[in-house]
Amino acid sequence: MEFLLLIADAPDGEAGVDLDAEHWVDDLESRGAHLYGNRTRPGAEATIVKVRDGDVVTATGALHEGRDWVAGFDVIECDSLDDAVRIAAAHPMARAGQIQIRPVWPFDDE
């Protein structure tokens, strides 16, 4: 199963955590579980696109405003949600921030 990990800041995160996730990525890659990941620019640099009455409408900013912001993402492959939770818990941002896990829902599963 594939899972999207959204790596986010959180106001109640632990201070002083070494945020270098290179060891975490190396471990996942050695097990064949890490598919892709990267940082993201701040929400203020995001662009929202929607089409309304045939017109393309764009707006600058994140989908929602709040105290937390998405700092990056990873796509992993593992056997279950329990495995994804264990993998996410080992990421440094699980201590300094928070990680949202979303199962990938392939179109061919419908």
Rank of each mutant, 00 (worst) to 15 (best):
V70M: 05
A89R: 10
D9K: 08
D20A: 14
H91N: 13
A44T: 14
P92V: 01
L19A: 03
H91G: 03
R95A: 09
A8R: 11
G43N: 05
C78H: 03
H64A: 14
A10H: 10
D20Q: 10
L81V: 13
S30A: 14
R52M: 11
T60F: 00
G97I: 01
V25P: 00
S80I: 11
I48A: 11
A88P: 02
G97W: 01
T60R: 05
V75I: 15
C78I: 02
L19T: 06
E65R: 09
I87V: 09
S30R: 11
A10L: 04
A33K: 04
L6I: 10
C78M: 07
A46I: 05
G43T: 04
D82P: 02
A88R: 01
D55N: 10
G54F: 06
E29F: 05
H34D: 06
V70W: 00
P42W: 08
H64P: 00
F73W: 12
G72A: 07
V57L: 12
E22N: 14
L35P: 01
V25C: 14
A46M: 08
L63T: 10
A15L: 12
V85A: 03
A88K: 00
P92L: 05
A88Y: 01
W69D: 15
D79I: 08
K50T: 11
H64R: 11
W69P: 00
H34S: 09
A33D: 09
D27G: 07
P42A: 12
D68V: 01
V17N: 10
H91F: 09
E14P: 02
T40K: 03
A59Q: 06
G37V: 04
D83S: 14
G72M: 05
S80N: 14
D20K: 09
D79E: 15
R86C: 08
A33W: 05
E45D: 15
A90D: 13
G66R: 13
L6N: 03
V17Y: 07
G13C: 07
V70L: 10
D53T: 05
V51E: 13
L5F: 08
D55E: 15
T40Q: 15
D55I: 05
W24D: 02
D20M: 10
D26E: 15
K50V: 02
E29H: 03
L28S: 00
R41A: 15
A21L: 01
D9H: 11
